[in-house]
Write a protein that binds this DNA or RNA. Structure first.
Length: 508
RNA sequence: GCUCCGAUAGUGUAGCUCGGCCAAUCAUGCGGGGCUCUCAAUCCCGUGACUCGGGUUCAAAUCCCGAUCGGAGCACCA
């Protein structure tokens, strides 16, 4: 029997497992332009990170352009935070997603006015004077409000008055005509502009404008002006697309291709909102936007979660419309692979207990800085050490342990305020280089002697760990290290004067 | 109430467009073992899923209908 081999190959190719992002539908010779458009009313959260990473990644793959657009058109309800503009830029850079272009919507308000006027002239937009609940009643009933019937001249006139600040906040909005009887109430005559008297936080904008566009309008116009070819965002904005398409149809524009991802819920963070975090920072619950408990990129950065790991994590999620609920453990697993080979090892004793060693002789332990390498660190040891409370808890006289890279000990007394152990072993010179297999549980330790240790605080999402660490940790400022039997941390600050180190916990 | 979207192992994901190669991919987690002076890393082995019910078809994870469950929108927020 004859089988065409090329046919079989072609069929088999289809089922090759793939991972990550689905392919983009790109026209012949089309240059892709993608954007991420946050409201900088707070720093980038883990949700924003998905938008940055995925859009930038597509731009990179297709040799296209990545635009960062600040949709900062709400000076009142969710006013932009001035520092957050900078933070977004920093965060993008950290993620290796430096935008090819940065746009501030608040700089381009007059542009939006132009298109508003065009739509009014086309008879596709009208100034509505209904109160909110009044309009809602019309909308729910599927009937036009009285202002919808106004002629183009009247609408133009009223629009000019809006711009001239002749109306008060709440008195008038500009609506886009869709279909008042549309079966989906979410799509019926939506508001495109409203009056906001609150000045914009950006000093260069301030109170220059009294009429501000809403997302659907601003985004619709901007996406067209910026030549966005593909919009990739959460599926909560699917209706937005449907609303915006009316504007595109009226103006004869072509809507970008869209891709939506489902809701992402992170176990560790649960439900959160930027404003709720903001309040918690204000009342002192959190220390700031980079508190290790907060779901921002700034916090992850401070904890030593690398950009490569974050990017891989986000890209592996793909762009499915399924709602997902996942744990950061996946991110940690990726990050561990990244930092493990480059993170030096140190002893950190949490919840420390000082212990007296009988028959101890002064000496220096020399553990490896990293198990894969041969360079050593030096830890002087005297007659007192700190051990983790949990390591000696429940031990009885006669129980034995090995102090890692030092020698074996036997418990003598755990009752007194300073527990006592005694050194067991053979010749002193062999203590540092015990070759035989350890017979007892191996624990780590920190010398309790003058200048022999640092006070260390590890700030973790669940709690702060206070303890002591070996002195050479001081040389690792800014680096990620592994505290043996504890986990990976980033050394956040070193106060040499007071021999105090603050570290941020990354993960186990 | 109206509308839209989704459903593959504990979690995430591939496969679904164009039905057969799927007794279903990969990662993570979990269990067991090797190595190791860290409860890490690493290596080996194992574990575990197509939401349910109908239909179409020689053949369904894949197509159709219904149900159930989950999520979202119906703001003068983004």
């Amino acid at each position: 029997m004859e089988i065409a081999p090329e046919l079989i190959e072609e069929i088999s190719e289809r089922k090759v497992p793939s991972t990550g992002l689905p392919d983009l539908e790109v026209g012949e010779g089309e240059k892709v332009v993608l954007r991420f458009a946050p409201n900088p009313n707070g720093p980038a959260t883990i949700g924003s990170v998905r938008g940055i990473v995925v859009n930038a990644e597509y731009a990179r793959r297709h040799n296209g352009e990545f635009v960062l657009r600040f949709d900062d058109t709400d000076p009142k309800t969710k006013p932009p935070m001035l520092e957050a503009y900078l933070w977004y830029l920093e965060d993008c850079e950290y993620l290796g997603a430096v935008p090819d272009r940065v746009v501030y919507a608040s700089d381009r308000i007059p542009k939006y006015y132009e298109y508003a006027e065009k739509l009014i002239l086309l008879g596709k937009a009208y100034v509505c004077f209904c109160k909110r609940d009044e309009f809602k009643r019309y909308k729910d009933a599927g009937v036009a409000c009285p202002h919808r019937a106004a002629d183009v001249g009247t609408n133009l006139e009223c629009w000019k008055r809006m711009l001239n600040r002749e109306y008060a906040e709440g008195e008038a909005v500009l609506r886009i005509k869709t279909d008042v009887g549309h079966r989906d109430p979410a799509l019926r005559d939506w508001a495109a502009f409203r009056i906001v008297e609150t000045p914009h936080p950006r000093p260069e904008i301030g109170d220059r404008f009294g009429v501000w566009p809403l997302l659907d309008f601003e985004s619709a116009v901007e996406d067209h002006l910026l030549g966005i070819t593909h919009i990739i965002r959460g599926k909560d904005l699917m209706d937005s697309e449907l609303r915006q398409r009316y504007v595109y149809d009226y103006l004869g524009w072509q809507y970008p291709k869209t891709l939506h991802w489902g809701r992402m819920k992170i176990h560790e963070f649960g439900k959160f909102s930027t404003s709720a975090i903001s309040r918690a920072i204000a009342d002192g619950t959190y220390t700031g936007w980079d508190d290790p408990r907060v779901p921002t990129l700034r916090a992850l950065r401070r904890r030593g979660i690398t950009a490569v790991a974050i990017r891989k994590f986000m890209i592996d999620l793909g762009v499915g419309e399924t709602d997902i609920s996942l744990s950061l453990d996946n991110l940690y697993a990726i990050n561990r692979k990244v930092i493990d080979p480059v993170s030096n090892r140190y002893f950190f004793v949490w919840d420390p207990v000082a212990v007296e060693i009988r028959d101890a002789a002064p000496m220096v332990a020399t553990p490896k800085r990293h198990p894969d390498r041969d360079d050593l660190r030096e830890i002087p040891a005297g007659s007192r050490v700190f051990l983790c409370g949990e390591d000696i808890e429940g031990l009885k006289p006669g129980d034995r342990l090995r102090l890692k890279n030092l020698y074996d000990i036997e418990i003598v007394d755990t009752e007194s305020p300073t527990p006592t152990v005694k050194r067991i072993g053979t010749a002193a010179q062999e203590w540092c280089t015990i070759e035989e297999k350890p017979r007892y549980r191996i624990i780590h330790w920190v010398p309790d002697m003058q200048d022999g240790y640092l006070r260390v605080v590890v700030r973790a999402p669940d709690r702060a760990y206070e303890g002591v660490g070996e002195a050479s940790i001081a040389s690792e400022l800014g680096n990620t290290v592994q505290f043996e039997r504890f986990g990976f941390v980033r050394i956040d600050s070193v106060d040499a004067e007071n021999r105090l180190v603050v570290a941020y916990f990354a993960h186990r």
